[in-house]
Design a protein around this nucleic acid. Structure first.
Lengths: 232, 232
DNA sequence: TCAGTAATTCATCATATCATGAAATACGCA
DNA sequence: TGCGTATTTCATGATATGATGAATTACTGA
């Protein structure tokens, strides 16, 4: 009877460990973080995470086996997505635990940002206040497909790659707040750097769309509205 | 510059993965679950989790390196404890994700319990109602040290090992609700089995103290109050 | 039906993880 | 000082994981 109990416990903790194994590798975590932004094909994920295609496919398989992501084939492409919104929550709770418990996370981020100039990100309250004053242009600098999958209401989509040649669309007399995937995504850092170099008053919002949404703020889906969707 | 970004991301996700690695092994998860009940020495943990001493020590080291637990030496003994209440939360969110995403968890539990007779645990609402009616004796069947570290207010401590010889303390005219460490701990299952065999109306509360507390219910610390602490 | 593309599977090698037993530490107490 | 106990470290072999390139599968469209 005792050994029956032991077998039960072992079986249960083995199951829990499947999820642990899923998130025990840095590349897999990066893939998961990307998938928090929305569905993607294998190729897109591999490229974005700097992985070989074979390698990415293998990691995605591991994530699938941990039931953290799901794959759907349509035509030539396989689209991966988070299996469940609870997976996103879990990822954020891992991230927040890492931030709290691992001093190295803060260290690494500090060192990375201090070489740059945009140390302090705007916080949510400030942003909301400035947006209400109508004094801010919010720019989503992620690839367009991520914008489509969900963005801050009223944000304009200018993927980082297009930013330089689309500067004319931005007004110099308004503050600009750029955001991207979240606190460890560098797109908005680069955007702010570029914008400041061109004389804009630019700031970075640390939160990404999933964080924003998790805090209960509304998220818009689809293409940009024609004009005054500015209802942040 | 791109490679600087890559190095930053790699460094960050490597940090996140430290925590993932910490929880990627079934034995470590069992140890962590035990530590959610309160601090323990290496030997006690090893014994409870059915691990060799060397092995347990190694796993605890891994948990320490993931900053999930902390060790404190006092005299001959090293006491391990959860590094932070957020670690407990994280464990519960892992467990809940596993329950939701991994059909096997439900399967394994169902098979384990259906061989027994106490399929359906009492739920919290029912318990609270019955307690208010004064019709229930709540029994904590975990080892006494875990009871001391935190128990449901009004619960009596009768460790499973003592249950048989302390049956006289229990009244036949009251329902008995036994609880232990949580949904995957078998102490309360065995307790209910024993009690029913002796003619008691016994039920199992699935939740453990950490779950109870996480839901905002009060938890009492220390020895049993002399008499009417029944203030659940 | 064949070429072309997306993704997976397979094979391989290097490295990491795990369980175990033996040896070493660290501490309390006689 | 030396013995006994709790714990860690070390060494070992078995197994798992991870990166890579080659081969394969699955599908589209000419």
């Amino acid at each position: 009877m005792a050994s029956r109990n032991r077998r039960f416990k072992t079986a249960i903790y083995e199951q829990f460990a499947r999820i642990g194994k899923g998130i025990s590798n840095p590349s897999r975590l990066e893939l998961l973080d990307l998938l928090c932004q929305g569905p993607r094909t294998v190729e897109a994920l591999a490229k974005e995470a700097g992985l070989g295609l074979t390698n990415a496919s293998q990691h995605l398989k591991a994530l699938r086996e941990a039931r953290l992501v799901e794959a759907e084939k349509s035509g030539l492409f396989v689209t991966y997505r988070l299996a469940d919104e609870q997976v996103g929550q879990f990822f954020r709770s891992l991230r927040s635990l890492a931030e709290r418990r691992l001093a190295e996370v803060g260290e690494i981020t500090r060192r990375f940002l201090e070489a740059r100039e945009d140390l302090q990100p705007v916080d949510r309250e400030q942003l909301l206040a400035r947006v209400r004053d109508g004094a801010v242009t919010v720019v989503d600098v992620r690839p367009r497909e991520e914008y489509r999958a969900g963005h801050l209401p009223g944000a304009v989509s200018i993927p980082l790659k297009e930013l330089e040649r689309r500067l004319a669309e931005l007004r110099h007399d308004r503050e600009i707040v750029a955001y991207c995937r979240g606190p460890y995504c560098v797109l908005s850092v680069e955007a702010v750097e570029l914008l400041r170099a061109r004389g804009f008053a630019a700031f970075r919002l640390e939160e990404g769309v999933p964080d924003w949404q998790a805090k209960g703020f509304p998220v818009a889906v689809g293409e940009e509205a024609a004009a005054g969707e500015r209802t942040l």
